[in-house]
């Protein structure tokens, strides 16, 4: 049964991630007074890309990178307890492995960008690297907060610590920090700095096309949904019911709400510059450290 939940996790994410992307695009279009593409457009995009010729612009790392990115995010998804239910794999990983897997995805993007040797990809890669270094701590702190509360590194204990230990002020602070970092986690405006179409033409992904690009696109969609679901699981645990199916459904609806938030923020903000973003991230890191500090004192 536990094994089945692992499979369910992956299937649900793979099936729903493009749909949420479709929601974002539709909503953005509404804000723009446009009609927008149909909700299934991201699925069609992926299909179309998969059917295209694969053009290689670098060495073996160029081809390996998208696979590694996709694999790492799917592995991370397998560990995460969706629907407030731990699965077979959850016990074998800890929060360090989840952070590691998420970072690996980012490293793959860098690897692909650097192996293409494109000038714009280089600039994009350096921006991606800065973003990673500055934003990953916030993610880590979210887990560590739970770990400190539950005095262990287990994933389920860290994720369900609000469910088990109740809401403290430290959680409220962390929730605010996570919300503020959300746009950076999912690389949407004002933090789509590494891709910035009009400056560096999608940065790290400029040389990618066809199936390789499809894998990166899928990776990005899954990553967005992962962060949205993490937020929902950690900070909004109150709606958990007895039934697994109902729990999953409730979480998906909550994720949808998070995506609406992401879309609205993205469509009402211009892109920040990397130096401006760094100042912003620095504030987030300090705030998340403060939250962990508060937990240590039991607040």
């Amino acid at each position: 049964m536990d094994i089945l939940i692992v499979v369910a996790n992956i299937v649900i994410f793979l099936a729903c991630a493009p749909f949420f992307e479709g929601i974002v695009r539709k909503l953005t279009a509404k804000v723009h007074s446009r009609q927008g593409p149909p909700l299934i457009q991201p699925y069609l995009d992926l299909l179309k890309l998969l059917g295209k010729e694969s053009i290689t612009a670098g060495n073996w790392a160029f081809k390996l990178a998208p696979m590694m990115a996709l694999a790492s995010i799917i592995t991370a998804i397998a560990f995460i307890p969706l629907g407030y239910t731990t699965n077979y794999l959850t016990q074998y990983g800890d929060i360090i492995s989840v952070v590691y897997l998420l970072t690996l995805g980012g490293v793959s993007v860098l690897l692909g960008a650097l192996s293409s040797k494109n000038t714009y990809a280089m600039v994009g890669a350096s921006r991606e690297m800065i973003t990673m270094i500055m934003v990953e701590p916030v993610l880590a702190m979210t887990f560590i907060l739970g770990a400190v509360k539950s005095k262990g590194l287990a994933i389920d204990a860290a994720v369900f610590s609000t469910l088990n230990n109740g809401y403290g002020w430290s959680y409220v602070l962390m929730l605010v920090v996570f919300l503020m970092a959300l746009q950076a986690f999912v690389a949407k405006q004002p933090f789509d700095i590494a891709e910035a179409e009009v400056e560096i033409l999608e940065g790290p992904f400029i040389e990618y096309s066809g199936p390789n690009f499809a894998m990166f696109k899928y990776y990005l969609m899954l990553k967005q949904m992962f962060y949205a679901s993490l937020f929902v699981a950690v900070f909004i645990p109150f709606l958990a019911t007895g039934s697994y199916l109902l729990n999953v459904l409730i979480q998906l609806v909550e994720i949808l709400v998070v995506f609406v938030l992401i879309a609205l923020t993205a469509s009402t903000n211009p892109r920040l510059r990397i130096d401006q973003a760094m100042k912003y991230y620095a504030v987030l890191i300090v705030m998340s450290l403060a939250a962990v500090g508060l937990t240590a004192y039991g607040i």
Binding site: S33, Q189, N269, P270, R271
Partner: peptide, 16 residues
Amino acid sequence: AGHLIGFDTVFMQSWR
């Protein structure tokens, strides 16, 4: 100008 700073809502609304 909106598009160039990554603010497509300004872009679409001005053109509308």
